[in-house]
């Protein structure tokens, strides 16, 4: 995730208005002044509303059509896939496609691996980001600014530039095809440090002084005051890390080997295409299985996700 040029204004990233958080009295105002008669105005407004809903529904259909057809095809028996005209709903649903994908595609192993890999990365990124962001926000030490810029510069280096050497490093550490190899390169994030530092900078100085008077050391202040107050940003980072880790593709592809010890579900999906257990319908059943955890995540944590994805988008 690239960041905008960093402004020093505290909370530039942290206080984004969540989408739709503020109610706006929009539909009411336009055209009030110059509508011809009340009745004509009202019917025109109704027409506009209908047009807007039609437009929204059309957009939703375009976005969802590929997903819908995937679900339909994942339920059809194989011969039905080539049927012309295509089935637009699963007229004879064949649920065992899902069990075939689950068993034959080793999806339970891949999903378990993905859960472990993602958990390590999310927890690791949260811990390293909280610690570093706390230091950058609350502690004074020489070269603090330079070091912070160094952290930010990692956002400018795309992963593929480091790929070649990282593969060598992981191999020489003996971490090829292990969870360590899969996760350790991602245990720190410049973006996360930036996001949390901005949130920490919003905490009033008085609070810190009051805590110091109460005999709070840095550790207690961090765990009892700073992190709880920055919870929205911490949650946003967690969701963001989760999404990034779960959907990783290039690194797991090069760093995992032929047995399925640590392969993640994304690589599992790629392999599902090639193996003989799979016909298209089974592959698609596997796809649905792989994406379901994330859809649930989206619906539950929409606010946090939006907050993390738009950090830097608005000033």
């Amino acid at each position: 995730m690239p960041a905008e040029p960093v402004s020093d204004a505290p909370g530039a990233a942290a206080v984004l208005p969540a989408e739709g958080a503020v109610p706006r009295p929009q539909g009411a105002a336009p055209g009030e002044a110059h509508r011809p008669t009340p009745r004509a105005g009202r019917s025109r407004r109704r027409l506009r509303l209908v047009a807007r809903y039609l437009l929204l529904t059309l957009g939703a259909l375009v976005v969802l059509l590929p997903v819908y057809l995937t679900v339909v095809n994942s339920l059809l028996p194989e011969p039905a896939l080539a049927h012309q005209p295509p089935y637009l709903y699963p007229s004879h649903a064949q649920w065992q496609n899902y069990s075939t994908a689950w068993v034959g595609g080793h999806l339970s192993i891949y999903l378990r691996n993905s859960v472990i890999q993602t958990a390590i990365i999310v927890v690791g990124q949260l811990v390293t980001s909280i610690l570093a962001a706390y230091a950058f926000a609350f502690l004074r030490f020489p070269f603090r600014r330079t070091l912070f810029l160094l952290f930010l510069s990692t956002l400018m280096i795309p992963f593929e530039v480091t790929l070649i050497t990282n593969l060598d490093t992981i191999t020489s550490l003996g971490w090829y095809n292990t969870f360590a190899g899969l996760t350790v390169p991602f245990l720190a994030t410049g973006f996360g440090t930036f996001l949390l530092r901005q949130a920490f900078l919003q905490i009033p100085r008085d609070l810190q002084e009051a805590a110091a008077l109460d005999g709070y050391g840095h550790w207690r202040f961090m765990t009892r005051v700073a992190v709880p107050l920055a919870r929205p940003s911490v949650a946003a980072l967690a969701v963001f890390s989760f999404l990034g880790a779960w959907n990783q593709y290039l690194w797991p592809l090069v760093v995992t080997g032929n047995n399925n010890a640590v392969r993640t579900v994304q690589i599992g999906l790629k392999l599902l295409v090639g193996t003989n257990v799979s016909s298209v319908n089974v592959t698609l059943a596997g796809t649905v299985i792989a994406v379901t955890p994330l859809l649930i995540l989206l619906i539950v944590f929409q606010k946090q996700l939006v907050r993390s994805l738009t950090a830097g988008a608005v000033k």
Partner: peptide, 30 residues
């Protein structure tokens, strides 16, 4: 706009953000 049911549309429109490359590839590959 603050219309009835707009939250559902918003979730739908933002939904592709959770699709991974592998998922998108298989969906469109089919």
């Amino acid at each position: 706009r603050h219309l009835r049911g707009i939250a559902v549309y918003r979730i739908i429109f933002s939904s592709t953000v959770v699709s991974s490359v592998a998922v998108a590839a298989l969906v469109f590959g089919t």
